Amino acid sequence: MINIQNVSFHYKKKSPLFNDFSLEVESGRIVGLLGKNGAGKSTLLHLISGLIQPKSGKIKVNGFVPFDRNPNYLADIYMVPEEFAFPSIGISTYVKAFSPMYPNFDYHKLYDIFNEFELQPSSNLNKLSHGQRKKFLIAFALSTNCKMLVFDEPTNGLDIPSKSQFRKILVSSVTEEQLVIISTHQVKDIDTVIDKVVVIENGKMIYQENIEEITQKLYFDLVPSLTGVENVLYNEQCPLGQKIIVPATTDNESSIDLELLFNAIINKKI
């Protein structure tokens, strides 16, 4: 569980990025953390992971203060950053060296995911493509079975089949005891796996809602034109007509178009 209360943060010689920011997220969720460039997504992930310390306010994750760097906390959180570097060693050597840091590491899960991603344990990490190294990092993260998993732009560098594999593997690997935070600009890559949406802008949370609550309130549709369509909350033109969001009724429900929802939120239409 994440509990953030009245947190403020700024980098040296920069204006405040977060000011009196609060957020609470329970375990058993896969959360999509969305926002434009510079909104503070990566900084928020670093605060949650204990890589940086808030200037004021309180953060607790699974009962720990992240920046205290308690060994029990570090053994139960894993972050996949957007940018990363590996030593020039083989996959199997890396796994042997780093897996003991995570008491719940599942080697069977790891090699099952390797098979899904077509990764060879004998491969040298620095001789793999960026996408292959990203897949390795995702596989390792999921195999730690940490209570908190943090992904910053996990689908960047993945081809279309690999993105589909990522969604399938994520859903099948995560348990109700875990909390997963995914920060991404590629919202279409995660719209079928998340069950909570959090949107931040200029260091402020402007939207948070569970997926089931969104589908009860909003209906997403594609129509040839807006003629005769009532109560349109937001619309975007596309080659086939208009993508729209309207209020949901008791007898209809739709799949969420996460990109359309995000644009509606940013444009203050919802």
Rank of each mutant, 00 (worst) to 15 (best):
L51S: 00
L51Q: 05
L51C: 00
L51N: 03
L51H: 00
L51E: 05
L51K: 03
I52H: 00
I52K: 00
I52A: 01
I52N: 00
Q53C: 02
Q53S: 10
Q53G: 02
P54H: 07
P54V: 06
P54T: 08
P54I: 07
P54F: 07
P54L: 08
K55Y: 01
K55T: 10
S56I: 01
S56H: 05
S56A: 11
S56E: 13
S56W: 01
S56F: 02
S56K: 12
G57S: 07
G57N: 06
G57K: 05
G57C: 06
K58E: 15
K58F: 10
K58D: 14
K58L: 13
K58I: 12
K58Y: 09
K58H: 13
K58M: 12
K58P: 01
K58T: 14
K58R: 14
I59Q: 09
I59D: 06
I59G: 07
K60C: 08
K60I: 04
K60T: 15
K60Q: 15
V61W: 00
V61Y: 01
V61M: 01
V61D: 00
V61A: 04
V61T: 04
N62C: 01
N62L: 05
N62S: 04
N62D: 03
N62G: 05
N62Q: 02
G63A: 08
F64L: 12
F64K: 12
F64C: 11
V65L: 06
V65M: 08
V65K: 13
V65W: 04
V65T: 15
P66E: 02
P66N: 03
P66D: 02
P66K: 00
P66M: 02
P66H: 03
P66I: 04
P66C: 02
F67S: 06
F67Y: 10
D68I: 03
D68F: 05
D68T: 05
D68W: 03
D68R: 09
R69M: 08
R69W: 02
R69K: 15
R69S: 14
R69D: 11
N70H: 15
N70D: 15
N70Y: 10
N70R: 11
N70K: 13
N70L: 09
N70F: 05
P71C: 12
P71K: 14
N72Y: 14
N72D: 15
N72C: 10
N72E: 15
N72M: 13
Y73W: 11
Y73N: 10
Y73V: 11
Y73L: 09
Y73A: 11
L74C: 11
L74R: 13
L74I: 13
L74K: 14
A75T: 07
A75K: 15
A75P: 03
A75M: 08
A75Q: 14
A75I: 11
A75S: 15
D76A: 02
D76G: 04
I77E: 02
I77C: 01
I77T: 06
I77D: 00
I77V: 10
I77W: 00
Y78W: 10
Y78R: 08
Y78V: 12
Y78G: 06
M79Y: 06
M79S: 06
V80T: 07
P81A: 13
P81T: 13
P81F: 14
P81C: 13
P81H: 12
E82W: 03
E82K: 09
E82V: 05
E83I: 07
E83H: 10
E83K: 11
E83W: 04
F84P: 08
